[in-house]
Design a protein around this nucleic acid. Structure first.
Length: 642
RNA sequence: GCUGGCGUAGCUCAACUGGUAGAGCAGCUGAUUUGUAAUCAGCAGGUUAUGGGUUCAAGUCCCUUCGCCAGCUCCA
């Protein structure tokens, strides 16, 4: 048979040759790293004999499918170990996930993570034994028989569904362990040396709270101990950077307890961070052609009925009585901005009209989803709404994307873009005319293409009211977070009958785009804290310079220097506490204050300071003016966008 | 919201099977006058999250409520 390789070379092999043998034929290294193959588009076990001509791709840990296969195989290994140690364990499902795997099981008398060492020990034993994973294909009835015998009630349920779907049934076995599984798997347990069990949690069977709760065990596996350790170190680093720990430690905000769940209280230092961020945001928006507006926190229920929120967002809203009428705290800013648009008859000459507001919204999130600043009940959306004509769409989208990327660049975030489109199979789900969608969706794609931005198209992920562009931001640890979002809305302009008068003198429906760049100021600051591990850029640092007189004798000089530094527009503090310099330096270092001016006898008599930079150390004694220039450069606010 | 875990001083943590709540750091006072990440001493700090129950006796056992954490679900 003729096998075609990805580099378009080809070679003849005897029919029945396996992927592993082909890999060995190419190189020993590839054979060692190979985990599975893609043959004519299908993912197959390495040891599956290939019978026909076809194109082959040998997949390793550096391929997404390779990682998933390794991890999925490890979930089998783990479940097998659990079943051996806890007889009577019934299997749920055990998929690979980003960075690892889990397995949901009903485990009798499971003691929790204290069992991890025993489970890991059993897994290591089976790794050493290098037990092969064996694929078996069978009829649905045979599989039912097999799993009925083994008491796997959840698997029987899955088999019933598979039968309805008319799927082929395959089963994988290693040692005594048997699991219903589509595959593929790595050849044997020996591949799974570098695993780590991570955590345990409850999870409902099929994610439905009416179903029984199973025990979920999370773990991960890598291709080498080196990459496993790097991953574990990253997890450790994530814990250290947790904004819920760093934020209160650095005096930025307080949460929880008497203040109510999901509500942040910004302390003076944190408020400086907010104010700096918001002030830059406002300046940048004015420069980018937005008009700033401000809308109330409450509005009559009628407004929310018109917008539709009253019906479809009711559970997330807070209501109150005002003058016997029903009011609601705003969960979104769009209706307010719409009223501003509707305040007068709009001409095409006014478009595009861009309105922006740092609008505080309240949403009644379920208690279980609250998470530090990332998910709260009251937060500030850096909201913007663009009203424009159909001809302006491409240009406006490009402007917004560029603007969003500007904000990510300021903070050295990476990013990846997703374009979410409607599901053409199910047009009923969506608001607006299909022809509008057919016009706008390609315009979004065109906007991104023209800018040369890479993006992933996800069909069926559009909101019901319109297609959208989501930009995920990637932080210093390589983690992705919800970032800027740009959403078209065919629904709300219709509900409010938003129009403009065109150059033909007729009324036209206006196009509307919602966009938020930070998403929420609170969450974005949470991201910044973790991204920078608390070492915020100089311009955001609540205190930028600490002045440390070595002894009381230099206190007066320190105060005088402090005045000069403040007059230079920097936030500074004099720390003349009765403590050793070493102690006060330590306070400044742990407080993550970017710069220190240390003034001893030598400096005091010559208008010099000894500059110390956070995280770097002593930069030596220098003229105050020079030190000030260095600090100013380190605390300079970012340039406004073009 | 659901399931599980947790809740002791501002923070980090002690207190054997129920038997007098304790330490370090932070805070305050004083001494010390300090040269690049912790000077020394003293003082103060608690209705053990909350309300109830069992007991001669509860931080410890049981129940309630609240909050936090993990996960599920949700996320216009």
């Amino acid at each position: 048979m003729r096998i075609l390789f990805p580099d378009s070379s080809s070679k003849n092999f005897e029919a029945g040759t396996t992927g592993l043998e082909i890999a060995s034929d190419i190189s020993r290294g590839l054979a060692r790293n190979a985990l599975l193959v893609r043959f004519n588009g299908r993912l197959l076990d390495l040891e599956e004999p290939l019978e026909d001509d076809g194109s082959i791709e040998i997949l390793t840990f550096s391929d997404e499918e390779g990682r998933r296969t390794l991890r999925h195989s490890c979930s089998h290994l783990m479940a097998g170990a659990v079943q051996k140690l806890f007889p009577g364990t019934i299997l749920g499902i055990g998929p690979a996930i980003d960075d690892g795997f889990y397995y949901d099981m009903r485990i009798p008398d499971f003691p929790g993570i204290s069992a991890f060492e025993d489970i890991a020990e059993e897994m290591r034993r089976q790794v050493k034994e290098d037990i092969p994973f064996i694929r078996m294909e069978m009829s649905c009835d045979e599989a039912l028989e097999l799993f009925r015998e083994r008491g796997e009630s959840f698997k029987l349920e899955l088999l019933d569904e598979l039968r309805e779907a008319g799927e082929n049934i395959s089963v994988y076995r290693h040692g005594d362990f048997v699991d219903l599984c589509r595959g593929p798997h790595v050849p044997s347990t020996g591949y799974l040396r570098n695993f780590q069990l991570l955590s345990t949690a409850g999870a409902y069977w099929k994610g439905d709270e009416k179903n029984p709760m199973l025990t979920r065990i999370y773990g991960t596996v890598f291709d080498s101990s080196k990459s496993l350790n790097a991953h574990l170190e990253m997890l450790e680093e994530s814990r250290k950077r947790d904004h819920r720990k760093l934020g209160p430690e650095l005096g930025l905000f307080a949460m929880g307890g008497e203040g109510g769940p999901g509500l942040a209280y910004w302390l003076p230092a944190g408020t400086i961070v907010r104010e700096e961020l918001e002030s830059h945001w406002k300046k940048a928006h004015v420069k980018a052609g937005y008009q700033l507006v401000s809308t109330p926190h409450i509005a009559p229920a009628e407004l929310w009925k018109t917008s539709g929120h009253y019906d479809y967002y009711h559970d997330n809203m807070y209501f109150l009585d005002v003058d016997k009428g029903e009011y609601a705290l705003k969960p979104m800013n769009c209706p307010g901005h719409i009223l501003i648009y509707k305040n007068s008859r709009r001409s095409y000459r006014e478009l595009p009209m861009r309105l922006a507001e740092l609008g505080v919204v309240y949403r009644c999130e379920k208690s279980g989803v609250l998470h530090g600043l990332m998910r709260v009940r009251g937060f500030t959306v850096d909201d913007g709404h663009i009203f424009c004509t159909g001809d302006q769409i491409v240009d406006e989208i490009q402007k917004v994307v560029r603007f969003a990327l500007y904000f990510l660049r300021i903070f050295d975030f990476g990013y990846s873009i997703e374009l979410s489109l409607m599901d053409p199979e199910d047009p009923e789900r969506y608001a607006g005319e299909p022809e509008e969608w057919r016009k706008v969706e390609p315009a979004l794609a065109r906007a991104l293409n023209e800018m040369g931005e890479d993006y992933r198209t996800v069909t069926g992920e559009a909101a019901f009211y319109g297609p959208k562009i989501d930009i995920k931001l990637r932080d210093a640890l390589g983690r992705y977070w919800q970032g800027p979002t740009i959403q078209f809305d065919f629904n709300i302009p219709q509900r409010f009958n938003l129009t403009y008068v065109g150059d033909d003198g007729g009324e036209h429906r206006v196009y509307m785009v919602h966009r938020a760049l930070f998403g929420s100021v609170e969450r974005f600051i949470g991201n910044l804290i973790e991204h920078y591990a608390g070492n915020l850029p100089g311009w955001l640092a609540p205190t930028q310079v600490v002045i440390l007189p070595i002894t009381e004798t230099q206190l007066e000089k320190a105060d005088e220097t402090g005045r000069i530094v403040s007059e230079a527009g920097l936030r500074c503090m004099v720390n003349g506490r009765n403590e050793t310099v070493g102690y006060r330096i330590r306070e400044a270092e742990t407080g993550k204050i970017p710069f220190m001016f240390i003034i001893g006898e030598r400096e005091a008599e010559s208008d010099r300071v000894a500059l110390r930079v956070h995280g770097e150390g002593d930069r030596g004694s220098m003229e105050l003016d020079l030190a000030l220039e260095i600090v100013k450069a380190g605390c300079r606010r970012p340039e406004l966008p073009e």
